[in-house]
Amino acid sequence: MNITDISGRYILTFGYGNRKNYDVFLDYLKSFNIEYVIDVRTITRAWSRQWYGDRISIVCEKNNIKYISKTALGNTSGNKNWVPANQEAANEDLKEIAEIAQKCNVLILCAEMNANRCHRTEVASCLEHLTAISVKHLE
């Protein structure tokens, strides 16, 4: 699958949904040479403790991948339409991630498995606009 743009970089998004283990997540991290996982959940907790931010951070660290939680990029709308709690903080986080994405392959992580029902599509769209780097939604 060729998903890189002319810069050789790409931004991927992934939702863990109700997955019981890290198999698919780790496959994507390795297959696409992900260097940063950016968690865009308002609260880095889940129905399953394995998807808590601290656990994901450990999994990433064991695989030489940096994990960053950006709660300012979380969603307060209760649906797929992205409404950050603080737009100024969200804009700052978007700029920071855009700088990282210029140098490294990143994966935007959220809970909703279906990208069409998740705010991460809007977050990724903002990053695509800031960086001109192509976005691919993984499921």
Rank of each mutant, 00 (worst) to 15 (best):
M1P: 13
N2K: 11
S7W: 02
S7G: 06
R9E: 10
Y10I: 14
I11W: 01
I11Q: 08
L12K: 00
T13Q: 02
F14C: 02
G15M: 04
G15S: 06
G17S: 07
N18K: 13
N18H: 12
N18A: 01
R19M: 10
R19N: 15
K20Q: 12
Y22N: 13
D23K: 14
D23N: 12
D23M: 07
L26S: 01
D27R: 15
D27G: 01
Y28D: 04
Y28I: 09
L29G: 05
K30E: 12
S31N: 12
S31I: 04
S31D: 14
N33Q: 08
E35K: 09
V37E: 01
V37S: 05
I38P: 04
V40W: 05
R41E: 04
T42L: 09
I43K: 06
I43M: 03
T44Y: 00
A46I: 00
A46E: 02
W47F: 04
S48A: 14
S48W: 06
R49Y: 08
R49M: 12
W51F: 10
Y52H: 07
G53L: 08
G53C: 08
D54H: 13
D54W: 06
D54K: 09
R55F: 14
R55P: 03
R55I: 13
S57K: 15
S57W: 04
I58S: 15
V59M: 13
E61M: 13
E61S: 09
E61K: 13
E61Q: 14
N64Q: 12
N64M: 11
I65C: 11
I65N: 07
I65T: 09
K66H: 05
Y67K: 06
Y67E: 03
A72W: 00
A72P: 02
A72M: 04
L73E: 01
G74A: 00
N75F: 06
T76A: 07
S77P: 08
G78M: 14
G78P: 15
N79T: 09
N79L: 13
K80H: 10
N81T: 15
N81H: 14
P84T: 07
N86D: 15
N86G: 07
A89Q: 06
A89H: 13
N91F: 07
E92N: 08
E92I: 03
D93Y: 01
E96I: 02
I97G: 00
I97R: 04
A98K: 00
A98N: 01
A98P: 01
I100E: 05
A101L: 05
Q102V: 05
K103I: 02
K103G: 00
C104R: 13
V106T: 11
L107N: 05
L107Y: 01
I108R: 07
L109T: 02
C110A: 08
C110N: 00
A115S: 13
A115K: 10
N116K: 09
R117N: 10
R117I: 03
C118I: 08
C118G: 11
H119T: 11
H119D: 07
T121E: 15
S125C: 06
S125T: 14
E128M: 11
E128H: 08
H129V: 15
H129A: 15
H129M: 14
L130M: 11
I133Q: 10
I133M: 08
K136E: 05
K136Y: 12
H137V: 07
H137F: 09
E139D: 03
E139P: 05
